[in-house]
């Protein structure tokens, strides 16, 4: 572990920008979200978390799968990134959400080449949360504001510096590249780091006990409790479009003259069209079923298939649902009813 003094952070970022395309939280039209930076000044450092999910850097809302020239009829693939990428300032929950997406995009060894081209090309500099939001419940889903899981390098903000720890091999290499800018920590700073770490976890005041939930849910598909949640839901995609673990997409062809491009773009289980079949039959015709799908997918089906919950407790869906349908309330209710 070493320190980077706050007044040298600019040099730190500049050094990184020599080697990498650096993505960091910036203010884009009223909202903080990850974008490629061209100067360190753009970076917002006072942020609880970004508004949009950083997983969009790896699985963008819309991307071209390939283009076809109808005269030749051989699918071509879009060019791949060549400069390595650093994502600076991603939060621990979001870094974990990438590990969750890794599982889906690598299910049974079938790799999603678009996702992994970006994923394997990127290094995550995770920023620990010293000021978690009231809607954060990462500690309830097996993580925490100082979780190093998924990080390549881990940063913690101290009063005058950032503590910087290499976590992975990739992280160590970056650590070396910026070594000149780093300093050793004093005893006091070490203590302050330990103190901040402890305090951060205590600051998470939003706890949902999820012990045994997924086992319980296995038998609860037809439980009457599902009648309670969906009434206020307007079936917009907000909760899933901002959720870092949501990975559903649609595929469509677009044609212009002799040119066809096949694109994929986010889709969402809260929409009626998501499951509508050509015959008109819809296996999930009601919002009740769709709300159940969202909850069950994250807290039961995903556990069944991948051994962990597909929610990292980031709170984005809570903060942004236009009708304040709070996933924590749903989970608490599911825990309390008789299965």
């Amino acid at each position: 572990m070493k320190l980077i003094k706050k007044n040298r952070l600019k040099d730190f970022l500049n050094t990184l920008m020599n080697y990498y395309d650096v993505f960091a939280p910036v203010l884009k039209h009223k909202k903080i979200r990850f974008q490629k930076i061209s100067t360190p000044e753009e970076v917002i450092l006072e942020y609880s978390n970004t508004h949009n999910k950083p997983t969009e850097l790896f699985f963008p809302q819309c991307e071209v799968l390939f283009e076809v020239d109808l005269k030749e009829n051989i699918p071509e693939q879009p060019p791949k990134p060549d400069k390595p990428v650093i994502v600076f300032g991603i939060r621990p929950c979001d870094a974990r959400s990438l590990q969750i997406l890794d599982k889906v995009f690598h299910w049974d060894g079938v790799d999603d080449p678009y996702y992994f081209a970006r994923r394997n090309n990127a290094i995550l500099i995770v920023m620990g949360c010293t000021e978690p939001r009231s809607t954060c419940f990462c500690t309830s889903v097996g993580s925490g504001p100082m979780d190093h899981n998924g990080a390549d390098l881990f940063l913690t903000e101290l009063p005058e510096a950032y503590a910087i720890e290499p976590v992975s091999e990739k992280g160590k290499a970056v650590f070396e590249q910026v070594n000149d800018l780093l300093e050793d920590a004093t005893e006091g700073e070490l203590k302050s780091l330990a103190e901040l770490t402890r305090r951060a976890e205590q600051m998470i005041d939003s706890e949902v006990n999820l012990n045994g939930l997924s086992d319980k849910l296995r038998g609860m598909f037809d439980h009457p409790v599902w009648d309670e949640f969906h009434l206020s839901c307007i079936g917009c995609g907000t909760c899933t479009y901002l959720c870092p673990t949501c990975h559903c997409f649609d595929i469509l062809d677009e044609k212009k003259g002799n040119y066809v491009r096949r694109i994929r773009f986010w889709d969402c289980c809260m929409y009626p069209y998501f499951t509508l079949q050509s015959s008109g039959h819809n296996p999930r015709p009601t919002q009740k079923q769709r709300v159940r799908q969202r909850v069950m997918h994250k807290f039961q089906y995903f556990v069944e298939n991948f051994g962990e919950i597909a929610c990292v407790g980031c709170g984005r869906c809570i903060l942004n649902c236009p009708v304040n349908l709070d996933i924590r309330s749903i989970l608490k209710r599911l825990m309390e009813v008789k299965g």
Binding site: H29, N52, C236, T238, Y241, Y271, P322
Partner: peptide
């Protein structure tokens, strides 16, 4: 303004 739209349809659905 609208290059920031994420086409979630919340505006329509609300």
């Amino acid at each position: 303004e609208f290059e920031n739209c994420i086409r979630c349809y919340a505006c329509r659905n609300a």
